[in-house]
Simulated assay, not measured.
Amino acid sequence: MNKIQMTETIINAKLSKAVSWESLAAEVGLDPVFLTSACLGMNSLKAEAAESLCRLLELPDSIATQLQQCPLKQWDQAVPTDPLIYRLYEIVGVYGGTIKELIHEKFGDGIMSAIDFSMNIEKEENPAGDRVKVTMNGKFLPYKSW
């Protein structure tokens, strides 16, 4: 079993049980963003969380084993055509330089960690149209001189 087969199996089980990522995450005891990312093959889970998810979705031990494996975090370098994912690329394209400038102004020369990191996605109801609220929180890592 590889990560792609793992993801397909998890998604099929999730769909057949008609459960949400939020409800699965609450049962497993993880944040929905992190659990979803692990199920999509971009992060790994500790044994207890992997086994708990597999119990909930009635999945074989091979899925729990694969969920615990360190992923190879790579993706196609082309800009995706899925409209939602494309818009995230567009945000970085338009505002990436601005975000970089403001981080450097406030913190100095460095980066925001994607390892010591959390993200939250919320729905904000609005009479003019519901809003998507994405909050990213990453540790600042200064570049060192030597």
Rank of each mutant, 00 (worst) to 15 (best):
M112E: 09
W75D: 13
K14V: 15
S44R: 05
V28R: 00
I99S: 04
D116G: 05
L84Y: 00
F117E: 10
E105R: 10
L30N: 05
T135G: 07
L141A: 13
L35I: 14
R87F: 10
Q77A: 14
E51H: 09
P71Y: 02
L59Y: 00
K17T: 13
I63W: 00
C70G: 09
I10P: 02
K133S: 14
G108I: 10
E125K: 08
A64P: 03
D109S: 11
T81E: 06
V79F: 02
D109T: 14
Q68G: 14
E58D: 14
K123R: 13
K100P: 03
V132H: 00
Y86P: 07
I99P: 02
L24F: 03
V19P: 03
K46S: 14
C39F: 06
L84Q: 04
S37E: 05
L102Y: 04
S118V: 12
E125A: 12
A13M: 05
S20N: 06
E8S: 15
L59Q: 01
S23K: 03
M1W: 00
T65S: 08
W75N: 12
A47L: 08
I103H: 01
Y95C: 13
P83S: 04
Q5V: 15
K123T: 15
T7V: 14
E22G: 13
P83H: 02
A26K: 07
K123H: 11
K3H: 12
V28F: 01
F107W: 08
E22F: 07
V19F: 00
I99K: 00
E22C: 11
G96Q: 04
L141C: 15
K3S: 15
L67R: 01
F34Y: 11
I10Q: 01
S16P: 05
V28S: 05
A38Q: 05
L15S: 07
A64W: 00
L72Y: 04
S44D: 09
A114N: 07
S20Y: 01
N2T: 15
M42F: 11
L15K: 04
E51V: 15
M42K: 06
F34G: 11
I91Q: 05
F140A: 06
N137W: 01
E105Q: 13
D130I: 09
K106M: 11
L35R: 05
N43I: 06
P80I: 08
P71K: 01
E105F: 06
Q77T: 15
F140L: 04
E125V: 14
A128S: 11
G93A: 12
R55N: 12
V132A: 09
I11G: 04
W75G: 15
M119G: 11
V132Y: 00
Y89K: 13
K17N: 08
K139I: 13
Q74Y: 03
R87I: 14
Q68I: 09
V134K: 01
C54I: 03
I91M: 07
E51W: 02
M119F: 03
I115E: 08
E122W: 00
P142G: 08
V19L: 05
Y143S: 12
C39V: 13
A128W: 00
Y89W: 11
T65I: 10
A25N: 04
L35V: 12
R87T: 15
L53S: 01
A18T: 12
N126K: 06
T98L: 11
I115P: 03
S113A: 09
E27F: 01
F140G: 07
K14Q: 13
P60K: 02
K106H: 09
I111T: 11
